[in-house]
Design a binder for these strands. Structure first.
Lengths: 211, 211
DNA sequence: GTTTATTTTAAACACTTGTTTGAAAAATGC
DNA sequence: GCATTTTTCAAACAAGTGTTTAAAATAAAC
């Protein structure tokens, strides 16, 4: 049974190529050539290029979001039991840490992070909306937690600050291994821990900023 | 003399279309049709599609960055004369305020902001690098100011936090008029002032976060 | 082992892409 | 008003796109 291999190979190749050259910038011929399969197999197994990229996203994003939600629910529950106020940093950490830890998990994961960083910026409606719908439960739960953690802050403000957080994170993911913008050469790649150590205080302080 | 009109029409049409559908997603035929000019005129006046998008960026980004730098230099000079410590918020404001004020300046400016939000995420090396080189002086001057404003903070930390700021800002610009990610429908468009009022405290607090 | 069902393959399809061409048209210089 | 340069235009170009087709090869079912 070769089916599993073919599908997997296509997904792996597509993931890497989409991450580097974007959705529009990658052709099915490039993907199938890299995957070592026939051109027509993409349409046979996935239906179309669009359904392929959705599957590429889903394959990794669904488990990633599950681990994010799991961690987040644990944080919210723990603090409910302890009757302590919910910590903003703990909420933010439950989003950021699985994201960046994910990087070291599997070999293809790193290029996937560039891809999801790009997916938010994708002009294509179908792809972006599909991506947004996969992210929605996480976003919703975080906002819920933040409302409890920061009483007195209008929900609209927290909504926008969460929006900014996603912007900062996705931008970081997108250019995770080649940070431009520096005159004196690149800043070099950071380890996952160091990156968390950088990003987490930033978004936490931003979220807690006085009104 | 029709030349000016033709070039201008192409730039205007390209700006709007690139902003909505991205660089790869917009064809020269769509652009020239919208501009009401002949297909060949893009290659005649600009050389190629790539040189066109660079010109679209340059036309608005150069003056925008000039006003950013002007404002920034004034802030840095003022505080030098007054011998006060440089305020982080003033530095961040000199970046964000002109950006968002720019939105109300000219009719095409709004779609341009979506475009520069997208330019950072552009997979195309040429476009992204050109964009980065136009942004570099602003980035450099801001980092310089921040080093003075936050003594004791390692430059590397400030570099990354500035990086996060750009991520948050560009993400906001990109989906400035259709914020997804919300279950209960869109949050609606915000006025420029309100958007500054939201973004500025976030990035300022993030920049000043304890180490 | 034969018969289904599934998967792979090469070729072609219909279409779009950015770019080039050479002649017609318009503007400019004097 | 003529000559020259600049700009416009329709047409064609070569290359690349996602997708479909029908036959060949492989796997599964019984």
């Amino acid at each position: 049974m070769k089916q599993k291999d073919t599908k997997q190979n296509i997904l792996d190749a597509a993931e890497e190529l989409f991450a580097v050259d974007g959705y529009h910038g990658t052709s099915l011929r490039t993907i199938t050539k890299k995957a070592g399969v026939n051109l027509a197999s993409v349409n046979y197994h996935f239906g179309s290029k669009e359904e392929l990229v959705v599957e590429v996203l889903r394959r990794r994003l669904v488990p990633l979001n599950e681990s994010r939600i799991k961690k987040l629910q644990k944080v919210l529950l723990d603090e409910k039991l302890l009757q302590q106020p919910v910590g903003v940093e703990a909420i933010m950490r439950s989003f950021i840490e699985p994201t960046l830890k994910f990087r070291d998990a599997s070999p293809g994961a790193m290029s996937f992070l560039s891809l999801i960083g790009r997916a938010l910026a994708e002009p294509d409606d179908t792809v972006r909306k599909k991506f947004a719908s996969m992210m929605e439960p996480v976003f919703h739960l975080m906002l819920e937690g933040l409302v409890k953690a920061l009483p007195g802050y209008p929900k609209e403000v927290l909504f926008w600050r969460l929006h900014f957080t996603i912007g900062a994170t996705s931008h970081t993911l997108r250019c995770i291994d080649n940070v431009p913008m520096d005159k004196e050469g690149k800043m070099g790649t950071l380890s996952t821990e160091k990156l968390v150590a950088m990003l987490l205080p930033f978004v936490t302080a931003g979220m807690e900023a006085p009104l």
